[in-house]
Nucleic acid binder design. Structure first.
Length: 231
DNA sequence: GCGACAG
DNA sequence: ATCTTGTCGC
């Protein structure tokens, strides 16, 4: 496990953070289809917090996209870099997530984030931000809708309904299990929305949430426990 | 002006 | 995110 320092130039205020998003938003690539589902590597990233001790732990877990077997894992621990502010989640998670990705012994392939990409007030959520910073293809799979309108998808697994910002489709509600609450998929960087949904379905053979985020969630929690362990 | 609001 | 026991069901 590696330890991270918050960059000197990291935003300290809501205004500064929003300015960073506005500056980087133009670098998002939306016209690539992205890697085909079921091939290469798929990497889940997730973060756990201990606000009491000002600790944050991130995990990156690389899966073989065809078999969903774990290929590699890495974790990183650091100080909390930003308070939770809706719309600015990336500033709370990214330094530690980047460190975990850097510590991987192999290329991550497609990165699956816990949160949103395009489905964001300024169209620049966590998945978009991470994609622009790394150049990697990224998607966001969130457990809850943000403030976007959406219809209830049909009951069968695989059904979708658009996440709408006015008339613009910024993501999709995707049913990954029959009759179970959908997940909310949006594009991050260098991946198309249809392909992002196909990847999400390929990653949910048994549970509502993708295997990538399930693995990363378990690992970052373990890393946090380890980091806040009494010596 | 008052809520709502990814994790 | 996190605080938290048991309980219903496959």
């Amino acid at each position: 496990m590696t330890t991270v320092r918050i960059p000197e130039d990291w935003p300290a205020t809501v205004e500064q953070a929003r300015a960073v998003q506005d500056r980087l938003r133009g670098r998002v690539v939306l016209d690539e289809p992205g890697p085909p589902p079921g091939t290469g590597h798929v990497t889940g990233v997730d973060v756990a917090y201990d606000d009491e001790r000002d600790l944050v732990a991130a995990a990156a877990v690389v899966l073989d996209a065809a078999t969903l077997a774990v290929v590699a894992e890495a974790t990183a621990v650091g100080r909390i870099s930003f308070p939770y502010v809706p719309g600015l989640l990336a500033f709370r998670e990214i330094p530690t997530v980047l460190a975990a990705l850097d510590a991987l012994p192999c290329p991550p392939g497609l990165v699956v984030c816990d949160g949103y990409g395009l489905a964001h007030p300024r169209r620049f959520g966590l998945a978009s931000h991470l994609g622009v910073l790394t150049g990697l293809p990224t998607i966001g799979v969130a457990k809850n809708p943000f403030t976007f309108a959406h219809a209830e998808p049909d009951a069968p697994r695989g059904s979708t309904s658009p996440l709408l910002a006015g008339a613009e489709e910024v993501g999709r509600a995707l049913r990954t299990r029959d009759g179970v609450k959908p997940v909310f998929v949006s594009v991050g960087h260098r991946v198309g929305l249809g392909n992002a949904c196909a990847h999400t379905l390929a990653l949910t053979p048994a549970y509502r949430l993708p295997e990538t985020t399930r693995r990363a969630d378990a690992l970052c929690r373990a890393a946090l426990r380890e980091a806040s362990r009494p010596v």
